[in-house]
Amino acid sequence: MEDVSHAVKLESIKSFQSTIRKMEKALAQMTQKGANTTLIKKRLNALLIGLDVLENVWNQRPLHYTEEALTDARIVLNGLLPTIRNSYVKSKAGSPQRTLLERRIKSLELAVQAIDDSFIGLS
């Protein structure tokens, strides 16, 4: 995994935590309305795994996921990137929204990279 500054590590972890909180709120609202929650549950699970993978790499926290769970999370996280990048392109330069999106993109990319690197250890 690339060498990442302490500041980027903190921003990435905070970005994941923020995104997870938003997904949890959205899941609660959708559940209350009786909407289909399959997709949001899948995304929330992938985000939780992504955060755990980063904390494992950077903070030596234990990681207890199967190769299949990591693969599924990688696919979902990678699938979120095009939409976020598209929102980033449409955002105004210097805006708080753009900064948030930059951090979200970076954190997702780092999580995908960390998952990829974890497969080296699983082989």
Rank of each mutant, 00 (worst) to 15 (best):
W58I: 04
L47P: 00
S123T: 00
E11C: 05
N59P: 01
L39D: 06
G94E: 07
V53Y: 11
I115T: 07
K42G: 03
L44R: 05
Q29F: 11
T83L: 14
K22E: 11
L48D: 01
K25N: 09
D72P: 00
D3V: 08
A28F: 10
K22I: 00
P82H: 14
L51P: 04
F16L: 09
K106G: 00
I20N: 07
K22G: 04
M1P: 00
T37V: 05
A93E: 09
K90M: 06
Q97N: 05
V76K: 11
Q17A: 15
V8P: 00
L77C: 09
L44F: 13
F16M: 02
K42R: 15
R103W: 12
W58E: 04
L51D: 12
T83N: 12
E2S: 08
L110A: 10
I105R: 07
R98G: 03
L27D: 05
S91W: 03
A35D: 14
L122Y: 12
E109Q: 15
Q60R: 09
E24N: 11
A114E: 10
N56T: 04
K22P: 00
D116F: 10
G121L: 14
I115D: 10
A7Q: 15
D72Q: 11
N78L: 15
T66Y: 02
Q60W: 04
S87G: 06
Q17K: 15
K22Y: 00
Y65I: 03
E24T: 14
L80Y: 02
T38W: 10
K90S: 11
V76Q: 13
T37Y: 05
S123H: 12
E24Q: 14
H6P: 01
V8T: 09
N86C: 13
K90N: 08
L51A: 08
L48P: 00
A93D: 13
V57K: 10
T38N: 11
D52C: 05
Q29P: 04
S5V: 01
E11W: 05
V8D: 14
A35S: 14
E24C: 02
S123R: 13
T37F: 03
R21C: 07
S15C: 06
K22S: 05
V89M: 09
E67K: 10
D72Y: 03
F16H: 12
T31S: 11
P62E: 10
V53I: 13
K42C: 13
R85T: 04
E55M: 15
L47R: 03
S91T: 08
H64W: 01
A93F: 11
T38V: 12
Q32R: 13
S95I: 01
M30V: 01
K25S: 08
K42D: 13
N56Q: 04
L54W: 07
K33F: 02
S95R: 06
Q17I: 07
G34N: 12
D52R: 12
N59C: 03
N36G: 05
L39G: 02
R61S: 06
A46P: 02
T66G: 15
